[in-house]
């Protein structure tokens, strides 16, 4: 198949940036979306142009490095990561618009690459259980109901790609934050730091310049790992509890 892509090109953080149109020929439907970009980049390189910069690494949907907005949708038309999106999802002759994640907290580095360091800093603000190495008790001393463990796992599958932020019209990082709050908050090990965790992470979330949640659910619908929306409600509950205890 032959397609046309319109790609956001921006040399660096200071550049204004614009959409640029390229044609890509002989695209196989079995190619992944990133492999299509590889083919385009080979073309660009040979013609002496600057190839398009995009983040990617594992290409199996788990590292969370890749992620672009395709035709206005984070990770494109399917709920999966960009690397797991295949060209069979598009028609021959399609015009595909490719843009970086847009959010105040995710400044563009180059072309489709953005800086998601804000997510790391949210984790730093409390997204962990303080368990110094070597201090752990025997693992089976602390049974965890299977249901809780499964739900915790569900939230822990977040890959930190940032699609939730890109999809949210408010540029909110609430689903990312809530996924971690839920993962750790559901486990008995996570209880001692539950209040300080939610307070620290929310403060950092806002400090990074993410917007607030308006409960419209675009994040969950775009999340390649299907992080459930009720995690946000759980975060709200936890913060309310912590504030009521005067922990802030």
């Amino acid at each position: 198949m032959n397609i046309t892509v319109r790609v956001w090109r921006q040399k660096n953080a200071d550049d204004k940036g614009k959409m640029v149109t390229y044609g890509v020929e002989n695209v196989s439907e079995h190619m992944s979306f990133l492999e299509m970009l590889d083919v385009l980049n080979e073309q660009l390189t040979l013609s002496g142009d600057d190839p398009i910069a995009f983040d990617h690494d594992c290409r199996e949907g788990i590292c969370g490095a890749c992620g672009v907005v395709i035709n206005g949708q984070a990770h494109g038309p399917q709920t999966t990561t960009t690397c797991q999106l295949h060209m069979r999802s598009f028609e021959d002759g399609a015009v595909i618009d490719i843009e970086p994640w847009r959010a105040g907290a995710f400044p563009v580095v180059k072309d489709l690459v953005v800086d998601r360091g804000a997510f790391d800093r949210i984790i730093q603000a409390g997204g962990f259980i303080s368990a110094p190495t070597g201090s752990a008790p025997e693992a089976n001393n602390l049974p965890v109901p299977k249901e809780d463990a499964d739900h915790a796992f569900e939230s822990a599958t977040c890959i930190g790609c940032g699609a939730c932020v890109a999809a949210c019209p408010n540029g909110s990082g609430m689903l990312f934050t809530a996924a971690k709050i839920t993962h750790l908050g559901l486990l008995p090990q996570g209880q001692p730091e539950r209040d300080s965790r939610v307070i620290g992470m929310i403060e950092q979330h806002d400090h990074e310049g993410f917007g607030g949640c308006t409960n419209i659910g675009e994040c969950t619908s775009s999340c390649p790992k299907g992080i459930p929306l009720d995690t946000i409600s759980r975060l709200n509950r936890d913060l309310l509890g912590a504030l009521a205890k005067g922990k802030a």
Partner: peptide, 20 residues
């Protein structure tokens, strides 16, 4: 020790119905 350490960190390993 690794398993103990990871469980203490909150790694959600698969569990049986008894919670182990």
């Amino acid at each position: 020790n690794i398993i103990d350490q990871c469980v203490a960190q909150g790694v959600p390993f698969a569990r049986e119905y008894g919670g182990l």
